[in-house]
Each structure stands twice: as C-alpha cells, then as structure tokens.
Design a protein around this nucleic acid. Structure first.
Length: 356
DNA sequence: CGTCTTTGACCCGCGC
DNA sequence: GCGCGGGTCAAAGACG
C-alpha cells in the first residue's frame, strides 16, 4: 500500500534473476507491479522471422519498468541497464518480442488484456513512463487472503443456512483494505498452445473473455497448498501466435516432486530444474522450461508435458528460446540462430549491477 | 474416485 | 449511483 510497503515487497526475494543462468539469452522484463503495476515481460520468445510481433527494445525505457527495483531494491539505478538497452535494442529487436508494458493500474482495465491487445502501442509509446502509470498498483488487486476470504464470503447458492451465513459473513467481511497485488511477471511466448508447461501444477479456476479480443483469458492457480501463485494466460490479439503468460506471486515450494515426468525430472531439463531451483521457487518456470528442449521422451508424452495439473501439451510450442538453445542439430528446422550474444551482454550488464 | 476443466454467477473497483 | 470489466467462486461435468 504505502510506498514503504511496496518497497518492502521489492526486497522480498522476488528476484526473477536469482540464480538465473546469465549465459542464456533470456531477456526478462521486470515487473514492477508494485511500483508501476506493469508486469514485467519476459520475452521468452526470440523472434525468428518477420513476425509482426517483432518489436523492439527501441524506445523501451527501463525506467518505466523500474525492474531494477527488483534487483536493487528501491534504490533504482537503472542507468546501466538503460544503456544496455540502448546499446542492444537495435540488435536484439529482431529476436525479442516487444516488451509489453502493462499499463496496469493495479486494477482491471488495462491489464494484460490491454497488453495483449496493444502489442504495438506499448512500443510505440514507451516514452511516457510515468504518465501512463498509475501508482495504485495494489489497488483492486486480488490479495490472496483478502480476496479469497471475501470471495468465500459469497454464499454458495445451494447453502441452506446460507441466508444467515451470508449475512453474517457479509457483516464479518473485513473492511475493505486495499488488496495487495503480488508482483507480476509476464512472458511472451510464441506457442500454439495456451497453457505452457512450467513444471508446476496449475488448476484452472476461471476463464473470461477479453474485451476487444477474440481470445479468452484463462486463470490458473498453483495447486500446491499454501501457494498462492496465480497466472493468467491469454493469447495476443494482435499476434495470435503469441501467448502471454502473466505470473503473480511467488511459489513457496519447489517443483512438485511427484510430477509425472515433468521437466524437473529430466535432463537436460534437470539442468533447467536445478537452475530454476537455484532461482528460487518463485521463478516462473515457464520461462525456463521453454529454454531447454523438452525431454526427448516427453515430446510425445502428454504426461510429461502436462504434469497433471498443467494438462498442457506444449509439444507444439515453438518458443524461440528453446530453439535457440537447442543443440544445433535440433535447430536445423528452426530458424536462424539469433544473435543473442548481445542479450547476454545485456543480461550480464544489468546482472552485474545486481550484484551488490 | 480423485483431479481437473467448464461455466454462469457473483464480487469488486473504477470511471463516468 | 450505475454500468462495465476484470477477477474469483464453486457446482457440475469430464476424464483417466
């Protein structure tokens, strides 16, 4: 709520780069929902062709994201990163999806939906960071506790003594505190499937039509107990080949060990898993799981992909990170290997800053 | 039988 | 205050 609180939150270990393999060409965008309400966009899709999504870092203003807050806490020194962007944007622009800055005001109107619907807008108008940002990032957010409680207050229709409960519960309903919103991170992934497997188990709890978009938005929640991580999955309206996955919150657990053949159990995905583990449970594994080739046995194995809750078969996922990281022989049918050296530089550039 | 998805209804915050 | 839209709930059904 208060800026202090938000700062605190930033200091909590939400560091998507934590333990991240700096050598990979992943290019995360930090959200700083807490500050600006913009979910960071992890563009885990390298652009391989002339897809319309090819946009750029050009014009991307890191200060807008204040992702550096994640790295440095509140002491924002994003100059270096900004430079990194400036230096590299032109080169990587061909490979990375446009960073979509979610001008989310912490509430409804312009969330990822807007992101999805305005792929280009974002990049076209990145230079108005603050003006487009509502600082009410935490408002209207679905804080795990409060939201749920309030929702649960809702009386089941079939409840008999519901009337009473309903009333009493309504009475007991905690006074509206502004709901806190977890930090959110968005990933853009070029994929034919919507729900990308990430090693965690998710339960779909809702689906809503997105305004101005033919594609619905799906809501998932981590099935692990006490893990309040949520994610929203939707397809970009402007580029239907792009799936936008927005994570909210941090996993307070590791990859489900019992997952049937999930990525965590395999190699080289195990590498991924360990990286992910090193990253902390909060790191969105979608991001990583797309970086490495799926287990060879998993390519046709829904279970491996689905892991139960995931229920996704992302065998058709054409994530370019994955492509670019795949062994050369596996890349043959893929596109040109992107020049992600710059990305590396980029990443390491600000990672560098990250280190105290 | 347990788990997950679907889906309509509801809640909530915001803008007008 | 009202309407809109996002987000969530939870019953019912599907699936393995």
């Amino acid at each position: 709520m208060s800026s202090n609180e938000r700062k605190d939150h930033l200091h909590h270990n939400y560091d998507p780069f934590q333990g991240f393999n700096r050598s990979s060409n992943t290019f995360p965008f930090f959200d700083d929902n807490n500050n600006n309400n913009n979910p960071s966009i992890y563009s885990n899709q390298l652009q391989s062709d002339a897809s319309p999504v090819t946009q750029n870092f050009q014009g991307f203003d890191p200060s807008f994201m204040s992702f550096t807050d994640y790295l440095h806490g509140s002491a924002v020194d994003y100059n270096s990163f900004s430079k990194a962007f400036d230096m590299s944007c032109s080169s990587i622009s061909d490979h990375v999806l446009s960073p979509q800055i979610d001008v989310d005001s912490g509430n409804s109107s312009k969330k990822i939906g807007a992101t999805a619907d305005n792929n280009n807008d974002v990049t076209e108008n990145p230079s108005t960071p603050n003006s487009s940002v509502s600082s009410s990032s935490n408002e209207g957010a679905a804080d795990e506790g409060s939201t749920k409680s309030s929702k649960k207050d809702k009386l089941p229709k079939a409840s008999e003594d519901g009337g009473e409960d309903d009333k009493s519960k309504k009475v007991n309903k905690p006074k509206k505190e502004k709901r806190k919103r977890e930090p959110r991170v968005a990933f853009l992934t070029k994929s034919e499937i919507d729900h990308l497997e990430d090693g965690y188990r998710w339960r779909k709890y809702g689906q809503k039509a997105v305004k101005n978009s033919p594609y619905p938005r799906s809501y998932y929640r981590c099935t692990s107990q006490k893990c309040g991580v949520k994610k929203r999955v939707e397809r970009s309206f402007q580029d239907p080949s792009v799936v936008i996955t927005t994570y909210e919150g941090q996993h307070n657990h590791h990859l489900p060990a019992t997952l049937r053949g999930n990525a965590a159990m395999f190699s080289p995905s195990s590498l991924l898993a360990s990286s992910a583990a090193a990253m902390g449970p909060g790191f969105p594994h979608d991001f990583l799981s797309q970086l490495l080739p799926p287990p060879s046995t998993a390519s046709n194995n829904p279970a491996a992909a689905g892991g139960g809750g995931g229920a996704s078969n992302n065998t058709t996922n054409s994530n370019l990170f994955y492509q670019s990281l795949a062994p050369p022989n596996q890349q043959q049918q893929q596109l040109q290997v992107p020049d992600y050296g710059l990305l590396q530089d980029l990443v390491s550039s600000f990672t560098h800053r990250q280190a105290p």
